[in-house]
Computed example of a mutant assay.
Amino acid sequence: MKSKEKPLILVTNDDGITAPGVRALVQMMNEIGEVYVVAPDSPQSGMGHAITINSTLFCEKIKIDEGPQSDREWACSGTPVDCVKLAITRILPRRPDLCVSGINHGSNSSINVIYSGTMSAAVEAGIEGIPAIGFSLCDFSYSADFFAAEDYIKKIVKESIDKEMPKGMVLNVNIPKLSKDKLKGTKVCRQAKAVWVEDYDERKDPRGRTYYWLTGKFENRDKGEDTDERALEDGFISVVPIQYDMTAHHFIAEMSHWDL
């Protein structure tokens, strides 16, 4: 990035381009850089790292609200990862200096990072060598207060740009459901070892056909003091650095003794 240029920031999400969370994030990023928005035209929660390969993709320029970015927004028919891929290869005038995804409605802490479309969009940017951050608020309400953590969000973004995160590095930021005066600050921590204990509710449709509806409950089985779940419970914003390399490096040496 040239010293006199404002950082180019790509904004995306998985709740859809009109979701209150992404509209709030766009406002915040307008104060920091030159914002381009490429986001799904409809909700894509839980899509993980899915990409569109068996159907066509549409990406339409759209104006949603006023602001410096008002003529730099596109609604995409695909997944969050599709949005990032299209933005980088077809839409942006140059490679972005940072990709921010969110603000998601609901937590993406611990195991949720695997399923999250919000985080997968950020990870896709990381794969492209672009520093990226996924923001999530632990509140599913449509009227959630996304501005309670505004100061922290902007500080995290500015630090990420100023400190030049390593290529491939992605931050998973989760914000507890608290008012501005109740937030205690940020904590850099690790992902908790938590799981979803899932089941499928069996039902019948009007024609008598059996169908299933995914249900389940979240269980945090990690009692560590240094986890994202603990930070959130204690009123802190959790910041977990993640990477797309899923190699279990610690097991490679042991496997070298296997009779393969």
Rank of each mutant, 00 (worst) to 15 (best):
R72D: 14
R95V: 06
S101R: 04
V113W: 02
P68I: 07
L86G: 00
Q69A: 15
S70D: 14
S101G: 15
N108D: 12
P80Y: 02
S110G: 02
M119E: 10
A75T: 06
E73H: 11
R94E: 01
P96G: 08
Y115V: 07
P96V: 03
S70E: 14
S107C: 08
C76A: 10
W74C: 05
C83I: 01
G106E: 01
K85P: 00
G106T: 00
V100H: 14
N112V: 02
E73Y: 06
R72E: 07
V113L: 08
R72S: 13
G106C: 04
C99R: 01
C83D: 02
I114F: 14
R72A: 13
A125H: 00
T89D: 09
S109R: 06
M119Q: 14
M119T: 12
C99G: 03
A75K: 03
R72P: 13
V100F: 13
D65H: 09
T89Q: 06
I103A: 08
I91E: 02
K85N: 10
I127A: 03
G102R: 08
V123P: 12
W74Y: 15
L86P: 03
R90S: 11
N112F: 11
I114W: 12
A121Q: 09
G117K: 05
R94D: 03
I127G: 02
I88A: 09
C99S: 06
A125K: 02
P68C: 00
R95L: 14
V113G: 09
C99Y: 01
R90V: 02
A87M: 01
S77C: 12
P93L: 00
I91L: 08
A125M: 10
C76R: 03
P80A: 07
P68E: 09
A87S: 05
G78E: 04
D65C: 12
N112P: 03
G126M: 09
V81Q: 08
A121P: 13
A125V: 04
D97F: 04
L92P: 10
P68H: 01
S77H: 07
I130R: 12
C99E: 03
V84Q: 01
P80N: 09
S110V: 01
C76I: 02
D71S: 14
V100T: 14
S77L: 10
S116I: 04
S70N: 14
V100N: 13
T79C: 13
